[in-house]
Write a protein that binds this DNA or RNA. Structure first.
Lengths: 317, 317
DNA sequence: TCGCCGTATGGGCAAATACTCACGCGCGCC
DNA sequence: GGCGCGCGTGAGTATTTGCCCATACGGCGA
């Protein structure tokens, strides 16, 4: 990833992108200004965009999105709701929702009082963290809802909490355990560890929680990430699984299922959503509509950042 | 300006720009997606940029800017300081500092407690307001430091407070009087009005103040905006004028001058900057270096948003 | 009703930008 | 010390974009 050695290059890239997007210079002018070849200027701008150094936001509320937000708020009694324009099919909706999710996160980070912020995992949360600006917020504590170790022992690809903590310089409490362990006994052992108990306690007392929402269809993240086999998935599907938050699986009414799997999950089950302790779901995509509707129905989440087609899909049900 | 009738067009423009900048589609693809001709897509994107619907921010701290910020903070004991990359000569520095100033404003607006926010006038503040996102902040009160009526009786070109109030839906207290009146008596009459007294009192009690900083050189805004004649300007220059905040003129040490003009100024003189009641100066440009250094020296302002060359110039003195 | 004017639209073209390729340099490995 | 290997660079080229113009549309006044 971006190491410290890249800093001067990133600085150049950021400067070039600034001149390009804010200053409105052409790449030729940038090259002249910075004393580079035009190709290099082009590469720097491109690099800045690719590395997420540059961040575009829409200073305008689209009527359609506002309507959907109002409808979702109304129907599910949401505390927070953001609906971003869709990007058309074949584009990753994370690109669309990440900036809005980041704004929600920044809103919390901007609070001057100290908060405990709990975080799930997943691509959407990772996108959110990447889009968060480098604000200093050392007064808050960041805590992980679930383990960040994948089955193969590697730290999870979607490292959310460490990245965010690094950006905002806040104390952080990752859960240094696997998401899912092999046996009930192993889990019991882990849960008895003081460190794990402390992190779980903090997570359960979180003031705000940000989570992804997983679908339980054939492309379930729990399966593609290797936590479930296809057979296990099918069995759980037959038990009525509609979605999953932090690994905990629920049915179409958003009621958590009583599964054998539960005893092997190390993470905290999210069930604290109240107006003063919101749980914000960050998710978009047609595959996630069912899972989102269920989580919203029972109030597992009472805040939502999604995109237009997903919002419409949720409301259509 | 942008009227309500433009809303559907602005919606289209915003959507096109979203697809272009966030989605990364080409204008051809946008045209296909939205069912338009390519030219129309191009015009919409262009319109969105022109109308300030789209807002670019740099998610990366440039080493050079951070250094300058630290040096300014240190030397002048600043509460807040932001230095943005310069755009090269011949580009309006307001483009560079407006987004950062808007972030500072949003930071204040995000506070959940109720604040009184005082605002000056000028191009830089106008740029800031345009860059502020449509956040709801009805808990705060916005108050004007000085009149918004120009000499010819028209409401000032740089309408700052009304625009901001409209965006954030906060109660606002403009000062419905001229910046400068013709005679001392006229001023006395105005100042005795209950409405004016109330606004002035609120402004003096502001929790945060945002001001532009005017230079007193040959291109002084006070003169180009028609408040001073060339002769008056020259006389004031001879009296040692270095800069001006909200119309109140100070010398190179940042001490307010005792001028005949003062008796005709309707606005509030800013002299409340403390760590808990910051006064943030928003200004950039080589002509403003002297004025800024003076205001920083005496602490008329204790916060600053500027650009790189200006910051370097201030420190060089 | 006609004609005028301002505005919006799409085609075409020149400029600007993104991509591809071949080369060169430095680094590490043998 | 020689030999690749990979990264970065510049030249050339395809694509995309911005702009100008001719034209169509619609509103308005005569």
């Amino acid at each position: 990833m971006t190491s410290d050695l890249d800093a001067p290059i990133d600085d150049q890239a950021a400067r070039a992108a600034w001149l390009y997007y804010v200053g409105g210079l052409t790449q030729d002018q940038i090259a002249a200004e910075m004393g580079l070849s035009r190709q290099r200027a082009q590469r720097l701008v491109s690099r800045a965009v690719g590395a997420g150094l540059i961040h575009v936001r829409l200073n305008h509320h689209l009527a359609r999105c506002v309507e959907l937000e109002a409808a979702l708020r109304e129907r599910f009694g949401l505390v927070r709701c953001r609906v971003m324009p869709g990007l058309g099919p074949a584009r990753d909706p994370v690109r669309s929702i990440a900036p809005a999710a980041a704004e929600e996160m920044e809103r919390v980070l901007a609070e001057s009082g100290s908060r405990v912020i709990a975080l799930g995992t997943g691509r959407a949360l990772r996108g959110m963290v990447d889009a968060v600006g480098p604000v200093e917020a050392p007064q808050h504590r960041l805590v992980s809802l679930l383990g960040n170790i994948a089955l193969d022992g590697s730290a999870s690809y979607f490292e959310v909490i460490m990245r965010l903590a690094e950006k905002v310089r806040a104390p952080h409490y990752p859960m240094p355990v696997p998401v899912l362990v092999d046996s009930v006994e192993e889990n019991r052992t882990l849960q008895s560890l003081g460190a794990v108990r402390k992190v779980r306690g903090l997570a359960q007392a979180a003031d705000v929680t940000f989570v992804g929402v997983g679908q339980m269809s054939e492309d379930a993240p729990l399966m593609t990430d290797g936590f479930l086999t296809a057979d296990e998935l099918h069995e759980i599907q037959r038990a009525g699984a509609a979605g999953e938050v932090a690994g905990w699986i629920y049915d179409r009414q958003g009621r958590y299922l009583d599964l054998a799997l539960n005893a092997r999950l190390t993470g905290v089950r999210v069930e604290i959503a109240t107006p003063s302790r919101p749980v914000i779901g960050i998710a978009a995509g047609s595959q996630k509509i069912v899972a989102l509707r269920a989580a919203l129905t029972s109030g597992i989440i009472n805040g939502l950042v999604t995109d237009e087609p997903t919002a419409a899909g949720i409301l259509a049900g």
